[in-house]
C-alpha cells in the first residue's frame, strides 16, 4: 500500500509538471508504463501486432488528454481505463471481428489436431533450448486462447484482477461496474476458463 501511495505521488508530480508545460516528462511516463500497457493490450487482443498498435494508441490518447486530467483518481487508474476502453472498442469494431472470423475459418483445419490431444500451439523448435521455457510458452499460448474466448466484460475484469493484480476498488473505477458485478464477473470468468482449460492444462 505504501508502495502504491509513493507511486501515485510520483505520478502526480510528473502529471503536474506536464500540465505546467514540461512536455518532455511524457517520455518518462511512457517508459514507466509501456510494459504494463503493452501486456494489458496483449492479453486483451491475443496478438502482438494488435497489442502494439493499441498500446501506442493508448499513449497518444493520454498525451492529448493529459492537460485536462483533473487528478481526481490516480494516474495509473486513468491509464488503465483508457487502455481497457481502447481495447474494448477495437474488439467490438466490425473490421476486427470480420478479420477474426476469417482467421477462425482458416484455423478449423487444426481442430482435428486438438481432438487428437495435440496442443494447438505446439511450437516445434529444432534448436536446442530450455524445455521449461518452451513449456511456458506453450502454456501461455493455450491460456491466451482461452482468455480470447471469454466475453468482453469477463475478459476485462479477469485480466485486470488475476493477470495485472489490481484490487477490486481499482477495477471498479476503471470499468465503472459495481463491486458486486466485478466479483461475479471474475468468478464466472474463472469457472469458464477452468472448463476451457480442462484437458489442456490439466487432465
Amino acid at each position: 500500500m505504501e508502495c502504491n501511495d509513493k507511486n501515485n505521488q510520483a505520478d502526480a508530480q510528473m502529471v503536474a509538471a506536464f500540465q505546467n508545460g514540461d512536455v518532455g516528462i511524457f517520455d518518462q511516463l511512457v517508459l514507466k508504463y509501456q510494459d504494463i500497457v503493452y501486456s494489458l493490450c496483449y492479453r486483451f487482443m491475443g496478438e502482438a501486432e494488435e497489442a502494439d498498435d493499441l498500446a501506442q494508441e493508448t499513449f497518444v490518447k493520454v498525451f492529448r488528454s493529459l492537460k485536462k486530467f483533473r487528478r481526481e483518481a490516480a494516474f495509473s487508474t486513468w491509464l488503465y481505463q483508457i487502455a481497457a476502453n481502447t481495447c474494448k472498442s477495437r474488439l467490438g469494431s466490425l473490421a476486427f471481428r470480420f478479420r477474426k472470423k476469417l482467421v477462425r475459418i482458416e484455423a478449423l483445419k487444426t481442430e482435428a489436431d486438438l481432438a487428437q490431444d495435440i496442443p494447438r500451439f505446439e511450437l516445434p523448435d529444432p534448436r536446442p533450448g530450455p524445455a521449461q521455457a518452451l513449456e511456458e510458452n506453450e502454456r501461455d499460448a493455450i491460456v491466451q486462447k482461452a482468455i480470447n474466448r471469454l466475453p468482453p466484460d469477463q475478459k476485462t475484469v479477469i485480466i485486470l484482477s488475476d493477470i495485472e493484480g489490481l484490487a477490486y476498488d481499482e477495477i471498479v473505477k476503471i470499468t465503472g461496474f459495481k463491486l458486486g458485478t466485478v466479483k461475479s464477473k471474475i468468478a464466472r470468468a474463472r469457472s469458464q476458463l477452468a472448463i476451457m482449460l480442462k484437458g489442456k492444462i490439466y487432465a
Binding site: L31, Q34, V37, Y38, S39, Y42, A51, V60
Partner: peptide, 12 residues
C-alpha cells in the same frame, strides 16, 4: 508480462 518492443517510445 509481455514486454513492449524496444522502439516503443519512438513509435509513439
Amino acid at each position: 508480462a509481455k514486454p513492449a518492443p524496444k522502439d516503443f517510445l519512438e513509435t509513439v
